[in-house]
């Protein structure tokens, strides 16, 4: 029985990979196909451009993007190839995003715990959580940078990357809070009443029942939180002016667009891969909690 589900799982993984690759191929075909047959001036409807121009500046060939990625970043001596620079920037962003994700997850989880413990808190806090996500990042970034700049405790001083991490955590905490709350509230009445007959208090019920039961809800929430943290990091790098990450690199390379259009696509691809890698890391964390994920594994 476990054998068949294991095999089924492996097959599902492979087919997911296959569909993913197919999607990439389809995207490439669409890109090159439109470039080949589309009008050079693009498609304009009622004065609004709805499809881009097809010249090499607006839509470089895929081959050009790839070959540009292995050439040096710029003409100065010792300049590394673009792909190496992209990986370096991606790793920097990943580190910052990971810090933001961790903080956001912990905070989100604590908020969920509070809401589960006190129903009043759920009614009072939940609307604020939703409201918090409607604040535009662009408005938030300068505020956080300004506040951070004022913090100076002994040898510790606020660094720019911390602002970025805070903004990433601001995006990451929300899905975790909502998912964890649903998970903590997921046990059936019969289980909760059983714990009551055992005279188990809130904390023991949490430990033995609610936490394990929340795992199937928590894992997707953490995955979502990781994706949000990456997006938050990329955007926050740009709006706080933090240098060294992939978000900043996307902007810098795009600015050299007119003379070197193929260069900008490498960091964009890097950001996409970064999102996939972060999801993969969370999935690995999920593997260690497999035992608590039985229903999900069985279905």
């Amino acid at each position: 029985m476990t054998m068949t589900t294991g095999a089924g799982l492996a097959r599902r993984r492979w087919s997911a990979l296959l569909w993913g690759l197919l999607g990439v191929v389809l995207l490439a075909v669409l890109w090159e196909g439109y470039k080949a047959i589309g009008p050079p001036t693009g498609v304009v409807l009622f004065d609004t451009s709805i499809l881009p121009k097809t010249d090499d500046r607006s839509m470089p060939h895929l081959v050009d993007m790839l070959s540009r990625a292995i050439e040096p970043v710029n003409t100065s001596a010792g300049s590394p190839p673009v792909w190496v620079a992209v990986i370096g920037a991606a790793l920097t962003s990943l580190g910052v995003a990971a810090v933001g994700w961790a903080i956001g997850s912990v905070v989100g989880f604590l908020i969920a715990l509070l809401m589960q413990r006190l129903q009043v808190a759920e009614r009072a806090v939940l609307p604020w959580l939703i409201l918090s996500q409607t604040v535009p990042l662009i408005a938030l970034a300068p505020v956080i940078v300004a506040w951070g700049g004022k913090i100076q405790i002994g040898a510790f001083s606020w660094d720019r990357w911390m602002s970025v991490a805070v903004i990433a955590s601001y995006l990451a905490f929300f899905p975790v809070a909502v998912g964890a709350l649903r998970g903590l509230q997921s046990p059936d009445t019969i289980h909760v009443e059983l714990m009551r007959t055992y005279n188990a208090g809130w904390f023991r019920t949490l430990l033995k029942l609610r936490l394990p039961a929340s795992v199937p809800y928590l894992l997707p929430a953490l995955r979502l939180g990781a994706a949000s943290a990456i997006v938050g990091t990329v955007v926050a790098e740009v709006s706080t002016g933090y240098k060294g990450g992939i978000g900043r690199m996307i902007i810098e390379f795009a600015q050299s667009g007119t003379s070197d259009p193929a260069k900008a696509y490498a960091p964009i691809a890097g950001a996409v891969v970064l999102g996939l890698v972060s999801a993969g890391i969370v999935a690995l964390i999920g593997l260690t909690l497999k035992r608590f994920n039985r229903q999900e594994a069985a279905s």
């Binding site: 019969i190 289980h191 007959t197 005279n199 394990p212 608590f292 229903q295």
Partner: peptide
């Protein structure tokens, strides 16, 4: 009696913890 664990209880659905 509940606090002293004087009884054991079973319901229509078994209510086992799946993990």
């Amino acid at each position: 009696a509940r606090l002293d664990q004087e009884y054991g209880i079973a319901f229509q659905s078994a209510g086992l913890l799946p993990w």
